[in-house]
Every structure is written in structure tokens, then in C-alpha cells.
């Protein structure tokens, strides 16, 4: 009985958490392409104006970023100004929560058919590599190891801390600017 009453609250909390994580991820995607050359090497191969979306089906939270040139991504919020070029869609909020709460690695979520790719698969692979690199930077190693297939052996602590600090600073600044606006 109690669990039935708590169910709607749990669902709302889960949705709010995924929404928040999408907002952070969107801004962090923008930030990593401003601070990390390896991430830019991946995104610079996307066409300029390329729109990438992550969404929870059918009309759940979403994040949209645009490639504005030179490998730099810009976070556009939760709505695309035109049809997106590549969309990674979680089939259900519960699946998005598993990934965003680092209970399931992105690659495992793909293997478990939790997500659909609408668009060029090779570009989805590139974006997944950028997302993995982002998670390796901004999450503590123990958490990051739960999020990515293999924690990069070449990522040393000083580099990780420096880039994580720069990404977090940019995310925070962007969030404050959004709130002020």
C-alpha cells in the first residue's frame, strides 16, 4: 500500500533527476569541446550546424547541442530549432535513469536495447566517445568506471582534475547565466 503511494513520488523524482542530468550533460558537452583537444578532434568531423539530441521517449526530457564549427558544441536547451541530424533516444525514463545514475554503462544500455539511434550510426559512435570522455573527466574514477566501458589508462590525475575543474566552472557559469536570463 505504502509503495503504491510512494510510486508517483519516485517517478517524479526520477524524472527530475534525469532532467537535471540532461541540463548538466548538455552544458558539459559544450564545455568539454572548449577545453579538450581530443573531444574536439571527434566533434570537428561533424558537419557545421549538426544537431545532436538525447531524448527520453515519447516526450520526456531532452538535450540538444549544435556543432558551431571547429569542433565546438553549443548547448541549445531541450528544444531543437529544426529537425535534428542525430538522435539517441531512451525507450523509457527508467532506462535513462539507469544510465544517468551510472547503474548501467552507455555501451551496456545499447547492448540491452535500452536506446535507439535515429541517424548516422558512425556519428553516434563519435558522440558516444565524446560522452565517455566527458564522464571520465567529470566523475570520480570509481563512478566513471561504472559509466564507461573502460576507464582510459592514459588519463592521469592532474590532467583529469584540471579539466574537470574547467568543465565544472563552465557548466556553473552557464547555469548562472541561464538563471539570470
Amino acid at each position: 500500500m505504502l509503495s503504491k503511494r510512494l510510486q508517483p513520488i519516485a517517478s517524479q523524482a526520477r524524472r527530475a533527476y534525469v532532467e537535471l542530468m540532461f541540463q548538466v550533460m548538455g552544458r558539459a558537452l559544450q564545455a568539454i569541446t572548449e577545453v579538450d583537444e581530443a573531444a574536439r578532434a571527434e566533434t570537428s568531423q561533424l558537419p557545421v550546424g549538426f544537431l545532436f539530441e538525447m531524448q527520453v521517449m515519447p516526450a520526456g526530457p531532452s538535450l540538444v547541442v549544435e556543432h558551431i564549427g571547429d569542433g565546438r558544441l553549443k548547448y541549445l536547451g531541450d528544444e531543437a530549432p529544426r529537425a535534428v541530424d542525430l538522435s539517441i533516444q531512451f525507450k523509457h525514463m527508467a532506462h535513462a535513469f539507469l544510465v544517468m545514475s551510472f547503474q548501467e554503462k552507455t555501451a551496456v544500455a545499447f547492448a540491452h536495447d535500452r536506446m535507439l539511434v535515429d541517424g548516422d550510426v558512425s556519428l553516434a559512435i563519435k558522440m558516444t566517445r565524446v560522452l565517455n570522455r566527458l564522464e571520465a573527466f567529470i566523475l570520480p574514477k570509481l563512478v566513471a568506471e561504472r559509466a564507461v566501458k573502460e576507464y582510459p589508462a592514459t588519463l592521469k590525475l592532474p590532467n583529469k582534475l584540471l579539466n574537470a575543474a574547467r568543465i565544472y566552472l563552465k557548466v556553473a557559469t552557464n547555469l548562472v547565466e541561464t538563471v539570470r536570463a
Binding site: 547492448a111 558512425s122 563519435k126
Partner: peptide, 13 residues
């Protein structure tokens, strides 16, 4: 090969 869709399901990065 690095951008091929199958690479997602390879057990190692």
C-alpha cells in the same frame, strides 16, 4: 573501423 557501429558491442574499448 573506429566509427563502425559494431565497435559499440565489442567487449573492450
Amino acid at each position: 573501423a573506429l566509427d563502425d557501429g559494431s565497435i559499440m558491442f565489442n567487449p573492450r574499448e
